[in-house]
Design a binder for these strands. Sequence first.
DNA 1: CTGAAAGCGCTAACAC
DNA 2: GTGTTAGCGCTTTCAG
Lengths: 337, 337
Amino acid sequence: MTVTIYDVAREAGVSMATVSRVVNGNPNVKPTTRKKVLAAIELLGYRPNAVARGLASKRTTTVGVIIPDISSAFFAELARGIDDIASMYKYNIILCDSDSRLDKEVQLINTLLEKQVDGIVYMGREITEDHMRVFNTSNVPIVLAGTKEKSSELPSVNIDHFQAGYDATIRLIEGGHKRIAIVTGPFQDPLAGVERFEGYRKALEEHNIDFRQNYVISDKLTYRAGMAAAKSFMSLEETPTAIFAASDETAVGVIHGLQDMGKRVPQDIEVIGFDNIRLSEMVRPKLSTVVQPMYDIGAVAMRLLTKYMNNEDVDDHIVVLPHRIEERQSTTLLRDE
Amino acid sequence: MTVTIYDVAREAGVSMATVSRVVNGNPNVKPTTRKKVLAAIELLGYRPNAVARGLASKRTTTVGVIIPDISSAFFAELARGIDDIASMYKYNIILCDSDSRLDKEVQLINTLLEKQVDGIVYMGREITEDHMRVFNTSNVPIVLAGTKEKSSELPSVNIDHFQAGYDATIRLIEGGHKRIAIVTGPFQDPLAGVERFEGYRKALEEHNIDFRQNYVISDKLTYRAGMAAAKSFMSLEETPTAIFAASDETAVGVIHGLQDMGKRVPQDIEVIGFDNIRLSEMVRPKLSTVVQPMYDIGAVAMRLLTKYMNNEDVDDHIVVLPHRIEERQSTTLLRDE
DNA sequence: CTGAAAGCGCTAACAC
DNA sequence: GTGTTAGCGCTTTCAG
C-alpha cells in the first residue's frame, strides 16, 4: 500500500541503508547509484515517513509553541517571527493556543513533550511555580518569548518593560504634563501589569509628581477596558491631561472613550500606547506608542532555541531587545506649541 | 535514561500490553492491576512516546494547517476556530504559514504528509492545478476553509461570496446611491477578487445602474490600498457617493483616505466593508460591514475534517455558512433622513 | 483479563 | 561506497 524505504531499495537494487543515505543527502554515495535511487523514488512516489525517522533518530524537527491567544495581534506577530526562523531552520511548529489558562498550558506542555518536540517556545503572561514544575520535567530546551520569569533560570527574550514604561511616562512629563494617568495590565502580569507600571511610578517620582491612586487603573488590556478607563478618569474631579495605556488596543479604546465624551486627542488630552501593533496606524489620530520589536522577539527566541537544540554555546540566555517611542498624532510631544 | 513502557511493565510486574491498555484507557483491565500500573507510571514519571505510538498505530492525532498569513486578523480568527475544535477532539495542530506562495504551499503540504498528519485544513486565496496535483497525492483528507476550488471536488466551508457582494451593494443602492464604487481583491482570488465583485455587478445590473470601469479598483486588500483607492476615486470627475471595499482593513483605509481629504463618512460618502474583523468596531465611524462567521468557518472545517478522519458519513462536502450585514456608522442605511 | 510476539519505517553503527 | 543488523517505543493480533 504505502511505499517504504524497503520498496525503493528493492526497486533500485540497493540496500535500505543506501536509500536512507541519498534521502538524507549523505555524500558517501556513488553518483550512479544515487541516480538509480532517485529514479526509483520518483517512480514509486516514495515519501519518507517522518514519524519512523523520528523514532529512530530521536529528533522530530518539530518544535512546540504555546501562545495565549492566536487572534491577539501582539502574539500573532511574535508567532510570525518564530515561524519564519523555524522554517528557515527546517523546523515545523506545533502551535497550541493556551487561552492563558494554567491548566491548559500545563497539559499542552505535557502533550508537546509526549510528541517529542525538539524544543518549546513559550509565550504567556505569567509564570507560576506550577509552570516551572512542568518546565523542569522537560528534557528539551524551552525559551520564553515576550514573557518573563523571576528566577531568570529560563532563557527568554524581551524588551526592558520597566524602562519602556519609564520612557513613555517621561515623554508625557516632558510634554508638560503633571496629571498623568495610566491603564496598566493585571498585576499578575509581571510585564504588562507590573514593570511598565513601576516605570511609570519611577518617572513620576523622579520628577516630583505626586502619585495618585485614582490615576491608575489595572485591567485586562482590551479595547473595552480602555473605553471604560477613559470614562472613569473623566469622572474624576481633577481629570488627567495625559494617559499612558499599557497596550495599543487599550490606548485606542481610551481615545475613543474620550472622543465619545467630546474630548479631543491630543489637544485636550494626550494618549500614548504600547506595542506598536498595526492598529496604531489605522486609527485617527494615529497612535503614539512604545514600539516593541514583536517580530524580532519571536525570531530571536526561535533562533535561541535552535542554538540550544544544536548544543551550541549561547553567551547570554536572557536577551533584552531595544525599544523606542514612535510619536504619531495622539501626543504632541514634538510640536512646539 | 528515558523511561519506556517496558520499564513501567517491569516495575508493575505486568506485560507491556497491559501497560499499553491502561495508558490507552482500554476497559479490559482489572481495577487492581490498573492501579498497580498507574502507580508505576507515577513513580517512574513515565510519559508515553507519541512518535512510537504514531508509528505503531498509524495515527498521529495531529493535523496540518496551512495559513497564508498568521498575522492577518481574518485568518487568525479562522485558525482560532480550527484550533478550538481540534483541541476539543484531542488533535494537535502543525501550523504552517505559507505566505501565500505557491512553492511554499506545495512544499509544506509535502512536509505535512511526511509527518503523517491525520488530515489537513487548507486556507489560501487561490487554488491552482499545482495545488490539486499535490492534494491528490494525499492519503489523508483535506478540507478547505475560507477558500474555494472550482471543481468542487474538495470539501470546503465558506459563505456565499457572490451573494454577500450582491447584498452589500443592494444595501448601498437601497440607501439611494447610484454612484457606487468597489475596491475588490486581485482577480486571481476567486472569492475576494471575483465573486464579491460579480455580486456587485449583478446588483448594479438588476437596478439598471451603469457599470463604470473607473469605479472599480482591484488590488491587494490592504489598508494602504484602501487609502490609495479613496484618493483615486476622489480624483474622478464624477465621484462616487458610496464605496464597497472587499475587506474591512481596506474599508478603513478608504475611510481614512476620505477623511484626510476632508470628506465625512457617512455624510458625504458611505462605506461598507467585508469580514467583520475586530478592527471594524475599533475605528470611528464604526464600520458597517458584511459579517463573515470567521470563527465558525474554521470550526466547521475542522469538524468536517474529524468526520473524514473517522470515516464518518458526511452528507455534504461543500458547506455554505450564512452571512449578514452589520450596519454601524459608516453607512446610514437605517437612518431615515 | 493478560501476555507473547510480530511488526510500524527508518537510522545508525559496524562490517566489508 | 554499500550492505547487515539492531533497535527506537509502542500497538495489535492472537492465544490462553
